[in-house]
Amino acid sequence: MRFLSAYLIGLVFGVGIVVSGMANPAKVLNFFDVAGTWDPSLIFVMGGALAVAALGYRFVLRRPAPVLAETFQVPTRRDLDVRLIVGAAVFGIGWGIAGFCPGGALPALGTGRVEVAIFVAAVIAGIGAARILPDLRRGPRRPTVP
């Protein structure tokens, strides 16, 4: 049941992504190219998704628990930190270079196009690199001031 529902939710998400144009890097990059071949379509994607999610979450999160799991796992932190801001800034640079974001690329994988698979493999490499970062920081000891 958990499998089937997760699969179907993924399908709804994927169809949404593809229909919206988020799986098409040409459209995504044009959304950001205000000074060039601007295509404002993606404002409508964000608007539609946010309206439904904001309204839906309000009702859903009032319930004691989700239907197929024990608890809601929702981030509780509200403070801003350097890691969040730097990470977001870096993410944007990558998105601007490639035109794909992870949510756009995963449904696009289904087209079987090699470029998409290569992009997803690169994203995975980046995720791996970010995961070993804290270890690296902890690793070498700080030079002691004489």
Binding site: R2, S5, A6, I9, G10, V12, F13, V15, G16, I17, V18, V19, S20, G21, M22, S41, L42, I43, F44, V45, M46, G47, G48, A49, L50, A51, V52, A53, G56, Y57, V60, L61, R63, A65, P66, V67, L68, A69, E70, T71, F72, Q73, V74
Partner: peptide, 20 residues
């Protein structure tokens, strides 16, 4: 794009409602 956005939002709500 709006229709796609609505579906993305629906998927997000369903994932929260069913899987949390």
């Amino acid at each position: 794009s709006l229709a796609g956005g609505l579906l993305i939002g629906l998927a997000a709500v369903l994932l929260m409602a069913l899987h949390g």
